[in-house]
Amino acid sequence: MGLYIEARIRADLDELWSASQEPSRHQRWDLRFTEIEHLPRAEGEPQHFRYATRVLPFLTVAGTGVSAGETQRPDGSRTSALRFASPHPLSLLAEGSGYWRYVPDGDGVRFLTGYDYRPRWGRLGAVADRLLFRPLMGWATAWSFDRLRLWLERGITPERALFNWLTEIAVRVLVAGVAVTGLGLESFLRLFGPFAAPMAYLSPLLLLVALSLALFLPPRAATPAARRCLRTPPTRARAPRLLRTLENPR
């Protein structure tokens, strides 16, 4: 089962193309990559690239890929196709392919991707991919798309967006922890003075409300969220013909 993610971004098409195609800008917002580097190429050849992802502070998984783009399509849209592979033995992702489409839509652009890959490690890898890695990749892609949207629409840099997300997660965890354990409840009730005793009867309800807010309150507008992206294609999605012209990277 391939992955599909779509975001509508109110931005100029050229600006969106630049932010997603230039390695130095792409690696800033895409959570899946730590480094992206274009490799030298001859005139007329597809663009080869190297990518790396820091899985742990002491472990970086790298791979290579090849991509090509179409910037002048009859309907005004643009397309980028790629194939990628990682020889690293600790990389669950062995090889794969995908595409990006940029479809003008009123005052914005429908920015969408579809991709799939082959996991390694045999049956164990297939199970780990289905239960953990593939859902995580889908979430990371959608979260990154919304992070890009905030950058282009509102000027919130990817670094600031990450800080906003981490801060919000920390606050939610703190509130949930207080709600579950009841820490500080006695000090909180003292604020109500003579009404502390009646408020004590409401404390379970207050804790339940606090826990519900921590778990289910929508993310702030300045915080990237995967839930804002479409995860199922509205119509049957097909890979562009451009993808067929690319050979698997060596």
Results as ranks from 00 to 15, higher is better:
R220A: 12
Y102M: 06
T79P: 01
A126F: 01
G106Y: 13
P89D: 11
T167R: 12
P224M: 02
R130F: 13
Y99N: 08
V175W: 01
R244Q: 14
E186N: 11
R110Y: 10
H88I: 11
D105T: 07
V109Y: 00
R134L: 06
A161P: 00
F111V: 04
Y102R: 02
G96L: 03
T181M: 03
E37P: 01
H48I: 02
P23Q: 11
G184Q: 06
Q21T: 15
R149W: 04
P198S: 08
V180M: 05
R130K: 14
P74D: 09
Y102T: 05
H26W: 12
T235W: 03
G106F: 12
N248F: 09
I169V: 09
S67T: 15
L152M: 07
T60Q: 14
L93D: 00
A11K: 05
I156R: 04
A126E: 09
L215D: 03
P40V: 13
R130G: 12
R236K: 10
L166H: 08
L211K: 01
V180P: 00
L39F: 08
V127Y: 07
E153T: 10
T64M: 12
A225D: 13
L136E: 11
R154A: 14
S18T: 14
I5T: 09
P249E: 04
R120P: 05
T60P: 04
V173L: 10
L189T: 03
C229I: 00
P89E: 09
F195K: 11
R8I: 05
S18A: 15
S203I: 01
R78Y: 06
V175Y: 00
W139M: 06
L183Q: 11
L205Q: 07
Q21D: 15
A42R: 15
R220W: 11
R120V: 04
Y117D: 02
A214R: 02
L150K: 01
M137W: 02
S187H: 12
R120T: 13
W121F: 15
A222R: 12
L211D: 01
F84N: 00
T235Y: 05
V66H: 01
R231A: 10
G98M: 07
S80H: 10
G76A: 12
T223G: 01
R78L: 04
R220K: 12
V109I: 15
